[in-house]
Design a protein around this nucleic acid. Sequence first.
DNA 1: TCCCGAAGTTCGATTTAAATG
DNA 2: GCATTTAAATCGAACTTCGGG
Lengths: 348, 348
Amino acid sequence: MVTIREVAKESGFSSTTVSIVLNNAPLSRYIPETTKKKIERAAKKLGYRPNLFARTLRNQRTHTVGVMVFDMTDPYCTPILRGIENTLYQASFLPILTDVHNERSRFERYLEMLLDRKVEALIIVANWLFVDIDVLGDLEKNNVPTAMIGREPHTRSIGSVMVDNEQGTQMAIQHLFALGHRQIAFLRGPKHITDTAPRWKGVQDFAKKNGLEIDRKLVLDLPESRDPLSPFDAGYKLTMELLETKRPFSALMAFDDMTAFGAIRALTRAGIKVPEQCSVVGFDDIAHSRYLTPGLTTVRQPMPEMGAMAVSLVSEGISAVQEKRKITLNHRKLSPELIVRESTAAVV
Amino acid sequence: MVTIREVAKESGFSSTTVSIVLNNAPLSRYIPETTKKKIERAAKKLGYRPNLFARTLRNQRTHTVGVMVFDMTDPYCTPILRGIENTLYQASFLPILTDVHNERSRFERYLEMLLDRKVEALIIVANWLFVDIDVLGDLEKNNVPTAMIGREPHTRSIGSVMVDNEQGTQMAIQHLFALGHRQIAFLRGPKHITDTAPRWKGVQDFAKKNGLEIDRKLVLDLPESRDPLSPFDAGYKLTMELLETKRPFSALMAFDDMTAFGAIRALTRAGIKVPEQCSVVGFDDIAHSRYLTPGLTTVRQPMPEMGAMAVSLVSEGISAVQEKRKITLNHRKLSPELIVRESTAAVV
DNA sequence: TCCCGAAGTTCGATTTAAATG
DNA sequence: GCATTTAAATCGAACTTCGGG
């Protein structure tokens, strides 16, 4: 390994001077160009790369952020991670990725590991299950700016990025309404998930405003579960139950895309064509949605942007820590977008 | 921050002794239990956590591995990453995740960043595009054990994990053959992808052995492209072209799942029912495949296992480096599995 | 005072060599 | 030589202090 001392020797100056020059430190304004040139040339010649661990030991900076996902296999995560990665890259930060598999013990172990590595910030992708773990203790104490994606934390001091759920379902129901649907079935989310309530509120608000009557018999709730893939099975099962009641409906609005896939499977099995005989809308716009046939009409969460936004929130926090200001992180709500594909059609 | 010196002071021993005890170093066998107890109690009381950067500075170990993905949004990646993460976790290693977006400059920049951080190993998930970049230079020089998933590297000294492509397509064609299909269309992969040849070879071998005639007019090639999602569009387009020729076929074998999705879309648009009028098989078994309707029959790559295998390959390398042996990494070929779902059926 | 550069200390842990009884 | 403990050197960079012109 080439050290700063070797560069010093090669260039004929002391390591102090080398350090000052290569870091463009304040003092470097006194150092003549010729000296700088020589040092830079020597560094280049030897292929000098400063040892980041020595540097961190001195100045405490790691240029690393921890990313915690609750379940990577949830297709909702990937685009978010992409957004995080891309934004960090621009800032020359590197992410340490951890997946807690929805297990508390794993969460705690990983948190400890990340703190040991002095990540400068933490981003939590709280998809699906996340019963408010008291992260705060350790985090606040350690002064690590933290942002959460997809869940509103119960604490100040932790930033958050969410999609505007209410707005999303309003767009969806508005779309169905405009297509002439009046008998609409709903597969609501599990009660313990915080997205469930606002999404339903969006529907209700629209219904009230536009005189749409909601048939309570056509409203079902997904069961609680800690498996991000189970909504598919639940969607399938609930739709089957719905069909058995023989209550007619011309459209179905699912809690999320995965649920919608399950519903489509059930409808197809029952010989009901989508969208000709029944329209289906989802929520999320996970990657699958575009590729299944028919393509799923859904409400897109701007996932890469949410990742990017989380990074910019914690960046603020990092600056604050650097300048010894108190950290305060914001809460952001991003607008969703209605993506109309082939799973919805006008009533005949 | 609690340092080892504070633990020393609290316990009444020197920092040397504290270090020896806490690390269970060889010398600790001379240290009496009572001393150990006292030191451990002091450490616990103060909540002592050794500074990893100071430690790394001394002993060069980082317990970190770099993971490079060529495009995270490729659904093929996620389960592999999961496998990597899970296996690393067991070994108390942490992954730094980088996504090179199929860009050479980004690849080089990330590689540099990872080497600066002294990752103890590197795992490359070479999905889709990867025209043999000369990683070797830097890597070999820096003595970083490296394994590649999904591509056979042109160099020794880099380990690799692949699925047995030949075996995979053989299973698929065998399945179609057993269902009575004789007129089978093929959407082969782009020529520049290394998977393409062996997958085709599997088909040919089976055909020869079983007297299945392959109609060259029913064999099309995907165009070259650097977008992991484009196979969908290509699959759609090629299938449309196939249909226009009016040449009959009762089954279609796609290069991968994404291509198969495109084909299904085309067939459906053309009013051809899958699987009643045409069976479709894919390759990969990405997450989507289970959820579309009909569920896709496909050849599963054991992705989590491939990730795990890559970790175990580089672990070997890490041990070698530790013991100053020369690193030699193996090449592993894992068996795929045929997943029969709803997109294939017997000819009527 | 301004400019330039070097010596020496510090960050926190590990390890070697050596000092005790 | 043995059991027990520790002072001091080390890892590599950054910063503080100081001195000479």
